[in-house]
Design a protein around this nucleic acid. Structure first.
Length: 486
RNA sequence: GACCCCAUGGUCUAGUGGUCUAGGACGCCUGGUUUUCAGCCAGGAGGACGGGGGUUCGAAUCCCCCUGGGGUCACCA
């Protein structure tokens, strides 16, 4: 039975790279008919960010990544919050001390800083804990404990030898033990560090595969040695390629929009995000890139996960989102656009039947142009309000043309009498006006569009006129008469 | 700096010794369609596969070195 886990730390808003890791774990579990566990690694009391856990869980739900064990749903290995499992880590840490595999370190922050400064002064490019407390005699330890000096528990890294493992993505990797210092397992506040808590929980929760970012590779000697010291069989490891910013640095806040909730807010579709995240470092082995969730689950394999870092460019995501929007059934598109139109204040929170019908008529007109659901308000504002931007340059371009006064007059006269007020009929009479004026189609169509929407681009004109409705059209055409430049 | 990871057009990726004069996608350009934009359709530019050595009849594909980029070196995860 495959068991994987996503182990976020509630120290900030979730990040795309982080959610990508969650998605890979979820897909891997579902592919193998295994279980997906969510475990909250809230062991850093200083960096805890209120609300981030909810944001993380909501992001998973939004993407449709359901978890078999974890917060809210519980499970056989509860609790799934590390802050509620402190006794376990403490017990194990002290057990390792008793077995001589770990030791108490009484060095203060100041002392450590001093040590590092000293090492740097001596020309060391990198500092390493000098293991001074590892050499303390039992009597010295006892004395310090009795005088109440706070301590941490450090793991005794082997001073020589190597550890190696077979990474499911990178292959065999070897590390020299002497290069890693005696890392802290248990902090002086009694909380475990990532290394301890992670190893302990992955073992206790019977995790079979650890899929996490490449940045963790360098922690492998710690984790491997811990597993050995505890006499536990380590799970299989697969380190996923890092997501990079356009400058090839590890993706972070300074690269702009990387907060996952920001993508949700902007109007990306969950199915598009799911698809895109899945191909961030993975491919099905053929030319397909647009894949359904089912296809991804079915085709997923760690062998097809790339081992080179992935530069995250928004272009392609945006394209893919537009693709998914274009392929959305109309009713679906309408439902998803409504909240964005409400948010923009274009329609009320409570929709009456007439407004709803109007929305249903208008939204599909711009479906193919939308890249984001949040484009809807910008694209459609003039349908809902008279307070929309007017392209002044376009007005100057058209409203000095000699045929405009007559054109407006004719259009108003004919539209007013037109029944039914439908696109084909509107097109018919508009073309009559064009013929009557003896001008090219565009010379009527373009200025009319400007008169009705304030801009030079938009939906197909006749459909747009039908949707706007006769009263609004007449009112705007009359207003446009005041724009005429003589 | 040390250790580790990575190296195919701007970006993502296919490619696991010959079928590659390197395929696909995004982006870019051109043309077509159309009342505009978008979309759609059709074309196009852009890589001698980071460099150098090998191995081999034959290498983008295997090996070595170099170079470049990245990650990690906390009582953060």
């Amino acid at each position: 039975m495959v068991r994987v886990r996503y182990a976020p730390s509630p120290t900030g808003m979730p990040h795309v790279g982080n959610i990508r890791t969650a998605l890979f774990n979820w897909v891997f579990a579902r592919h193998h008919g295994g279980q997906f566990i969510v475990r909250i690694e809230d062991t850093d009391r200083n960096r805890y960010v209120e609300g981030s856990e909810a944001a993380i869980l909501n992001s998973l739900r939004w993407l449709g990544l359901d978890w078999d064990e974890g917060p809210e749903v519980g499970g056989p290995h509860a609790p799934y919050y590390q802050s509620q499992r402190l006794e376990i880590y403490q017990r194990i840490a002290h057990q390792l001390v008793e077995e001589g595999k770990a030791y108490k370190c009484f060095c203060s922050q100041e002392e450590l800083e001093q040590m590092r400064a000293q090492q740097r002064a001596e020309g060391a490019a990198v500092t390493m804990y000098d293991r001074r407390c590892r050499r303390l005699t039992p009597a010295e330890v006892k004395a310090r404990e009795e005088s109440g000096i706070p301590y941490v528990i450090r793991f005794k890294m082997p001073l020589e030898g190597t550890v190696e493992y077979e990474d499911l993505i990178h292959g065999r990797t070897v590390f020299q033990n002497k290069l890693t210092d005696d890392f802290v397992m248990l902090k002086s506040d009694g909380y475990p560090t990532y290394h301890l808590a992670n190893v302990v929980d992955d073992h206790l929760m019977e995790v079979t595969h650890v899929l996490r970012g490449d940045e963790w590779i360098s922690s492998m000697p710690r984790h491997l040695n811990l597993y050995m010291a505890l006499g536990w069989e380590p799970p299989k490891f697969a380190h996923l390629p890092l997501l990079l910013g356009p400058d090839k640095q590890k993706l972070s806040k300074r690269h702009g929009d990387v907060e996952f909730t920001e993508f949700i807010r902007k109007g990306y579709l969950p199915e598009a995000m799911f698809n895109f995240l899945a191909i961030c470092g993975w491919n099905p082995g053929d030319d397909r890139e647009i894949l359904t969730r089912e296809e991804i689950i079915q085709l997923f394999s760690l062998e097809r996960v790339s081992d080179n870092p992935f530069v995250f460019h928004h272009d392609k995501l945006l394209w893919m989102n537009g693709y998914y929007i274009r392929h959305l059934p109309k009713e679906e598109l309408i439902e998803r656009c409504i909240p964005f139109l409400q948010e923009a204040g274009l329609i009320p929170k409570e929709l009456d039947a007439a407004t709803r019908a109007y929305v249903e008529k208008v939204v599909p007109l711009e479906q193919e142009k939308m890249k984001l659901l949040s484009d809807a308000p910008k694209l459609l504002d003039f349908f809902f309000t008279d307070d929309y931007p007017i392209d002044e340059a376009a007005v100057r371009r058209w409203f000095g043309e000699p045929h405009i006064p007559q054109m407006l007059e004719e259009l108003i006269r004919r539209y007013e009498a037109l029944e039914p007020f439908t696109a084909p009929e509107i097109e018919r009479v508009t073309r009559e006006v064009i013929a009557w004026l003896g001008v090219k189609g565009g010379e009527v169509i373009h200025p009319t569009r400007v008169a009705l929407s304030g801009r030079t681009t938009g939906p197909s004109l006749f459909e747009m006129i039908e949707a706007l409705g006769k009263p609004r059209v007449l009112q705007r055409l009359r207003r446009a008469q005041s724009w005429i430049i003589r």
